[in-house]
Simulated scan of single mutants.
Amino acid sequence: MTVALLWFFYRRRNTKNNDPYGLFHLSLNKRQGENANSPPVTEWLNMGYWKDTNIFPDACQALALKLVRAAQCQEDGNVFDVGYGTGESLILLLTHPSVPRPRHLTGITSMPLHHKRSLERINHITPSVKTKISLHAGDAVYRQKSSSSAHPLNPSSTLNRFNSILALDCAYHFQTRELFLRQSFHQLLPNGRIALADICFSNAPPMNPWARLIRRILKLMPQENAISIDDYIRCLEQIGYEDVKVEDISEDVFPGFVSFLKSRGLGWWLFGSVMYQYFSAGARFVIASASRYRKE
């Protein structure tokens, strides 16, 4: 899971180890009154759902919980968490009182540093949970020539079948989102559900000149992922998903996130202004979810 557009701001850092995000998000999780020399309690890395809060980690947790509800996670289910950052969404799935506890939790992130840190953090809580945990480092999309055979979306595997697949603020980065959705469909169990907190565009033509310019400058997503809400729904249905829902929550995401960034000082204020321009150019933050009802 990622904070949208922060990749653009930080992508030139850590390029030698191909880890553009690093751990800068730790500072964003600091709450007022916390010891400045101690690590933050949480390590969230998403844009947040700001409807009832103005505190970054609370907004991030609210978005994650909204995604879990959209995925209709069930007790003793098999859950796949895609883009788990440094592990905060994993910890939520394992410990939050309102989240049904999975029997098996699988995760994948493309960031080696995040994978390593997540393993360390999860090891501190695993003695108290009974969930089987399998964390992977690699591309969210399975590639036959480069991915490990243990990749969660390997179509030849009969072991990696999921009741729920979650993608928290990351799928717009994938090469491509549609390929990820197709692979996920085949790895969902009957009646399984996928849910994504994602960025697309308004139902108006998404690539007007202003939107095209902003997208090109920020390099937020591959061109193939820059689709409208209607196209998003159509894509899910054409793959074979049923009970497709795409909820536009932009007004409870972009303004709150931008306001938070602008409170962080001049550099973040400028970055927040750019972020708002992306919103103004037609970007929409959505919760997309759908089920696989067809039997084997």
Rank of each mutant, 00 (worst) to 15 (best):
M111Q: 11
M111R: 02
M111K: 05
K116N: 14
E120S: 05
R121E: 01
I122M: 01
H124A: 11
I125P: 00
T126A: 02
S128E: 01
T131S: 00
A137D: 03
A137V: 04
D139G: 07
D139F: 00
Y142L: 02
R143T: 08
S146D: 08
S148E: 05
A150E: 08
L153T: 11
L153Y: 05
P155S: 06
L159G: 09
N160I: 08
R161V: 15
I165G: 10
I165P: 13
A167Y: 14
D169G: 15
D169R: 15
A171N: 06
Y172N: 12
Y172E: 06
H173A: 14
Q175T: 14
R177G: 02
L181T: 09
Q183A: 03
S184K: 00
F185N: 15
L188H: 06
L189Y: 07
P190E: 15
N191C: 08
N191W: 02
R193V: 06
C200W: 10
C200S: 14
S202I: 14
S202H: 15
N203T: 08
P205R: 13
P205T: 13
P206N: 09
P206D: 09
R215P: 04
L218K: 09
L220G: 10
M221H: 04
P222C: 04
Q223L: 00
N225E: 01
N225L: 02
I229D: 03
I229W: 00
D231G: 10
Y232K: 07
